[in-house]
Design a protein around this nucleic acid. Sequence first.
DNA 1: TCAAAAGTGTTCAAGTTACACCCATGT
DNA 2: ACATGGGTGTAACTTGAACACTTTTGA
Lengths: 234, 234
Amino acid sequence: MHLDSKKIFYHDATPLLIAVDCIIFGFHDGELKLLLFKRKIEPFKDKWSIIGSFIKKEESVKSAASRVLKKHAGLQNIFMEPLGCFGDVERDPGARVISQAFFALIRIGQDEIKTVNTHQAKWFDLDLIPELILDHNQMVNEALEKLRRKTRYSPLGFELLPKKFTIPQLQKLYEEIYQKKLDARNFRKKILAMNIMIKLDEKDKTSSKKGAFLYSFNQKKYEKMMDKGINFLL
Amino acid sequence: MHLDSKKIFYHDATPLLIAVDCIIFGFHDGELKLLLFKRKIEPFKDKWSIIGSFIKKEESVKSAASRVLKKHAGLQNIFMEPLGCFGDVERDPGARVISQAFFALIRIGQDEIKTVNTHQAKWFDLDLIPELILDHNQMVNEALEKLRRKTRYSPLGFELLPKKFTIPQLQKLYEEIYQKKLDARNFRKKILAMNIMIKLDEKDKTSSKKGAFLYSFNQKKYEKMMDKGINFLL
DNA sequence: TCAAAAGTGTTCAAGTTACACCCATGT
DNA sequence: ACATGGGTGTAACTTGAACACTTTTGA
């Protein structure tokens, strides 16, 4: 490396504040939900917002997002991917801040319900999302669009369900995402034809007397299917 | 606004260098091409790279990308959209720099050919892309994936063709993007069925004696089609 | 007159949609 | 015994894929 030249190249650039913000979706009791946080500090104290943090010099953008999810929401090893960059000059009246938004999907279990209380957070129904600070409503809208688009052609939906789930649960999830009723026979046929789930010897009886068989998603079978050039498509 | 509180909230954040980088695709003589630039300054002087610049405090991320396209490549009013954020700590050995990549499509005409010379740039065939600086090869690969994905379900391809184009030209473009031969009858049938192009009373005779009718893309018809819930799909 | 690209329909297979009844079980 | 959600097959329709010949015209 030519250290001197490097300085010549970089010296007139202005460093800026850059943050990550995480849009977190969950699915519980047949409802698709968004996790929002009550801001603890000024400005906008006590307003609802998605969770975020400034990026530190010694961490990657992605690790910043992981840190936020872990530290501020108690979430670890969950599905997460970049959504987009929000970079208008005036988006944050407090300072020039560029934000990289991330999009996370979680299985809502007992732990995640506790999380909500210890972090001043709340799960919101998608049609009851309050006004959020800055451009956070726009971020949420874009995240929702991405969720709707991407769940059609990749098995993202499984990230929102427990490891063991029933076909009616899976169908309900898709109905929530697409906001429309699906035909039970066709749905079943299609998803089973892909051969990416393992039928377990257990039934879930929480929502019917007969009980519905539990399945688990099989990542390996999914990858095999992809290798053969067959695509997930719902 | 509570100016004091704002300061409390933002004072411990570290500003970082943030750049935009633009991946520029073009189509000429039946070939899909990538525009690369010979870097004028150290470090990595004279290596091939995609074009970029640091973001200034008084411009949005998007305007930074527009500025780069205009100033460094002489391009204006072209299709451009965000590709993704590249934020590894060590991606640039010169400093911690986060980069927001953009993806641009242009019609290669006479002006664009001049541009190439005045800006030390060169159009590269996609299978002859040289080694680029930093993570630029990765950016290009992701841009290509996006191009392939997105041209299937949105009429992005038209951005790469002249305003007036023939159906064989359009087909050639898609064959280049997907790297496979398409059936001329089926292609024609499908694209015409969408009813989003206007047939002109002119023929292009540059590639055959018989000549092929020229068409133009009709944005309004396309929007009408979308409104009706019919999607572009090739 | 011939070479070279433009333009045109039909058939078959595959996939998608619509639709109605029996099953298992807890109360 | 009955109410509730789980589970199953078939027929009509739509869409995608395969395939070969005629037309035009400049050289």
